[in-house]
Amino acid sequence: MTTTPYEELRVPVTGGALAALRWPAHEAGAPVVVALHGITANALSWGPVARALAGRVTLIAPDLRGRAASSGLPGPYGIAAHADDVAALAGALCPGQGRVVLAGHSMGAFVATLAAVRHPERFGPLLLVDGGAGFPAPAHLSPDALLSAVIGPAMDRLSMTFPDRAAYRSFWQAHPAFAGAWSAEVDAYIQRDLTGREPLLRSTCRIDAVRADGAGLFTEEVLSAVRNLPAPATLLWAERGLMNEPQGLYDESRLKAAGLRGAGVRTVRIPDVNHYTILTGDTGAGEIAHHLLTDSRPGSATPSPPTV
C-alpha cells in the first residue's frame, strides 16, 4: 500500500503561515472537504481517507498550529485559535466554493464544531469522527494528568527523544491500537511528526500547544458548540477506545448525556475499529469516505434525525 500523492501548501494566518496538505480531485468542480486531525496528530493522519476518496473530492488537511509543519506558529493556542485558522484556510483555498464540508477527528472534531459556530458562512455539513461531543471531566485531575489519562502514550512521547526513525516506528507499533493495523500510510503519518537530528529526534508537537488545547476542550464554549451547529452533522463513533480497549470514547449512554437529541446530529457506531483505526484503518477510512461523499452531494444539507 502506497501513500496517495498530495500537494504541500502554506496559508497566511495570525502569526505566520499554516501548513496544509491537499489531495486534488480528478475533475474540476468537485466538492471540497476540509479535514482536521487530533490533538497530537498531523495532516497525514487523513492519508487513508484520501486514498478511499479516490479523487472524487478535493481533500484539504492542515497541520494545526503547534504541530508538524505548523509547529513554528506561535500562540495563543486553543480550540478557538484553531477554529479561526481553519476559517482562514477555507477562505484562502476554497474561494467560490460556498460552505464547504468540514470533518474532524478527535480534537479536530471539537475544532470543527466551534469553527462552524464561529464561522457559519464558511462551513456546511460536518462529519465528526470519534470526537466533537463532550462530557464533563473529572474535577480532581490536573490538565496534564487528564490528558495522560485520556491519550496515554501519545501524550507521554512529547517529552521523549528517539535515536532514529526506526525507534519511533517501534514505539508506535507497540501501541495496542495499531496491533495488526500498521501500513505505509500510518508510517508516513507518524514519521511526519518527527523533528531534530539523530540521536535526538522528538515530536514536533509543542507541549504548550497540547496543554492549552487540552484544557480548552472542557470549556463551555467548546462543549456547547455541537448543540448549536448551523448545519447538520454526523458523528461516527468507534466501538473501541484509544488503547484498543472494549470501552470506546463514546457509547450510547455517553452520547445521550451529551444532549444531542434535537441538535441535528446523527450518530453512527462503527464496529471493529478503535479511536485511531477509525481514521487510519481501511474499514474506518472507507466509512469516513462514504459519509464525506454523501455529505458533499448537492442537497445533502437537509438535516437528518439524530439517533440518540
Rank of each mutant, 00 (worst) to 15 (best):
residue 57 V to D: 04
residue 89 L to G: 05
residue 58 T to I: 00
residue 48 P to Y: 05
residue 112 A to F: 11
residue 122 R to W: 01
residue 62 P to D: 06
residue 94 C to Y: 05
residue 53 L to I: 14
residue 123 F to Y: 01
residue 64 L to E: 07
residue 64 L to H: 07
residue 95 P to I: 00
residue 48 P to W: 05
residue 121 E to N: 13
residue 76 P to E: 06
residue 87 A to D: 10
residue 77 Y to Q: 07
residue 131 G to T: 12
residue 90 A to Y: 07
residue 114 L to M: 10
residue 79 I to W: 01
residue 96 G to A: 08
residue 105 H to K: 02
residue 92 A to M: 04
residue 83 A to C: 04
residue 105 H to G: 00
residue 118 R to P: 01
residue 58 T to S: 13
residue 71 S to P: 00
residue 78 G to D: 03
residue 119 H to I: 01
residue 108 G to H: 12
residue 35 A to C: 10
residue 63 D to M: 03
residue 44 L to G: 11
residue 42 N to V: 09
residue 89 L to R: 08
residue 108 G to C: 09
residue 44 L to E: 12
residue 109 A to N: 07
residue 130 D to C: 03
residue 85 D to N: 10
residue 132 G to E: 02
residue 96 G to D: 11
residue 79 I to N: 05
residue 73 L to S: 04
residue 76 P to Q: 13
residue 111 V to D: 15
residue 122 R to A: 15
residue 65 R to Y: 09
residue 50 A to L: 06
residue 59 L to P: 01
residue 128 L to Q: 06
residue 42 N to Q: 15
residue 97 Q to V: 07
residue 87 A to M: 09
residue 103 A to K: 04
residue 63 D to F: 03
residue 109 A to R: 11
residue 59 L to F: 03
residue 104 G to E: 10
residue 63 D to R: 06
residue 58 T to F: 02
residue 113 T to R: 10
residue 52 A to E: 15
residue 39 I to S: 13
residue 93 L to H: 07
residue 117 V to N: 01
residue 126 L to K: 12
residue 47 G to E: 15
residue 123 F to I: 00
residue 70 S to D: 04
residue 77 Y to S: 10
residue 115 A to T: 06
residue 39 I to Q: 11
residue 48 P to I: 02
residue 86 V to H: 13
residue 127 L to Q: 06
residue 64 L to Y: 09
residue 67 R to D: 05
residue 62 P to I: 05
residue 63 D to S: 08
residue 131 G to R: 12
residue 44 L to K: 14
residue 111 V to G: 11
residue 54 A to G: 14
residue 76 P to S: 09
residue 129 V to Y: 13
